[in-house]
Amino acid sequence: MRLSEIMGRLDLAFWPQAALVIFLAVFASVVWRLYARTSREEMERAGRLPLEEEGVVGRTGTK
């Protein structure tokens, strides 16, 4: 019996449903940790990253 036949007889339609639940659980835990385990300051600091243009120490020219 070929592997694909064996696999074909398993009830794989259950897989995606299980995966759906797992994915939602992982996603929910990510969101939970994000809100419970990170500090306001670090979030604010991270949010300001694009606005930092510090560290310019000189200028040079190119064609």
Partner: peptide, 25 residues
């Protein structure tokens, strides 16, 4: 957008949720 508006993104946390939801869902 933060560059053009000259202010940081409204909620950095929300942007992270946004990210993972796209990846997961």
């Amino acid at each position: 957008m933060p560059k053009a508006a000259e202010r940081p993104v409204y909620s950095y946390r929300l942007s992270i949720v946004h990210f993972w939801s796209l990846v997961f869902i």
